[in-house]
Structure formats: C-alpha cells, structure tokens
Amino acid sequence: MADASDGHWEHFEHRADIGVRGVGDTLAEAFAQAAVALCAIVTDPARVRPREAVTLHCEAPDRELLLVDWLNALIFEMATRRMLFSRFDVHLEDGRLRARAWGEPLEVARHRPAVEVKGATYTELRVCRDAQGRWVAQCVVDV
C-alpha cells in the first residue's frame, strides 16, 4: 500500500503537453505519486480534500501499459464524476491494479482548475528503478 505522503512526484517538460512522474520505494508508491502528478496538472492537490473514495481496477500485459491504464482510468473518473482527487491507495499484484482514489466534487471557484487532461500517452513512458533503486513511473499526458 502507498499513499501520497510517501515518495514524491514531479512534472517534466514536454513542448506541447506535460510529463508526469511518480517516484517511490515501491512500484505501488510510484504509481500513486504519478497519479498525484496527474491531478496537479488540473489543480493544486492541497486544495482537494480527500472526502470521498472511488475504487478502480486495471489490468494490462506489462507495467508500462498498466501505468497508462491507471492514469487513463483516473482521467475517466475525473471527467465523468466531475471530481478531483488528491490521495491514492494503490495495490499491485500480478499485473493487476486495485486502487482507491480520494477526492471531492469539482468546485470551479475553489479549485480553479487550469486545464482538463485528455489522455495519458506512451510518449516518454517508463516504469523502472532509478540509480538509487527507487521506482520511477512516468509518461507524457495530452492536455
């Protein structure tokens, strides 16, 4: 299990779009952090109160495809529920992901969302360990 208080996330440069990167001691933590990075494209995660939880399931043939699936599942939930998320519990087992995403309904005045995310892409897609042995999960997302 991992939540947003472990590891860290960051954005990386892409000329037209933006890259999301999650780093953590475990793969699950890196996936959870990548999700925070995704939500931070829309608004400052500190503004999003973790009041409601949504459960998600994903499955893919490899880790990289699973990361894209996970981020796309979140994009779908954000779009259809009109919610923003800020905290994630991610469990990974045999190429399957089970997660709970915590957040609240979008309030334009308070959250001041900058841009909606259209989809996670396979560009700069990497799920691997860095030189320090920490897990890194990253890709470019289309905004």
Partner: peptide
C-alpha cells in the same frame, strides 16, 4: 470532447497490444 479522447485512449492500447 471526452468521446474522442476515450476512443483515442482505447484504440491506442488495442493497437499496441
């Protein structure tokens, strides 16, 4: 809008696989 984004997302994965 969302419909196009979702179609792109789903077929991209199917085409990769």
């Amino acid at each position: 809008r969302g419909l196009g984004h979702q179609i792109g997302t789903e077929f991209l994965k199917r085409m990769v696989v």
